[in-house]
Amino acid sequence: MKLEILGTGCPKCKRLYERVQKAVNESGIAAEVVKVDKMEDIIAYGVMKTPALAVDGEIVVVGRVPSLKELQSIIKL
């Protein structure tokens, strides 16, 4: 599974990145967590509000930082 965190480095983007990593570690699922901070790539997803989270190329969260619990359920899908 590939988890991409879209954001240009705002505090919320960092928080989402850390929380996703934590969710991955705690659930023990093998996943690759990547930061996407290049504007072209963020725009290519059509995202206009950061931070956003993409799971295997599919946008699942836009413009907010979900709770750890919500992230864990997203990852388990």
Partner: peptide, 17 residues
């Protein structure tokens, strides 16, 4: 619309596009 200054660039591009 909830929006912070860090999103103004993707928003600008998205609107213009």
């Amino acid at each position: 619309t909830p929006f912070c200054s860090c999103s103004s660039v993707p928003l600008f591009i998205g609107f213009v596009e």
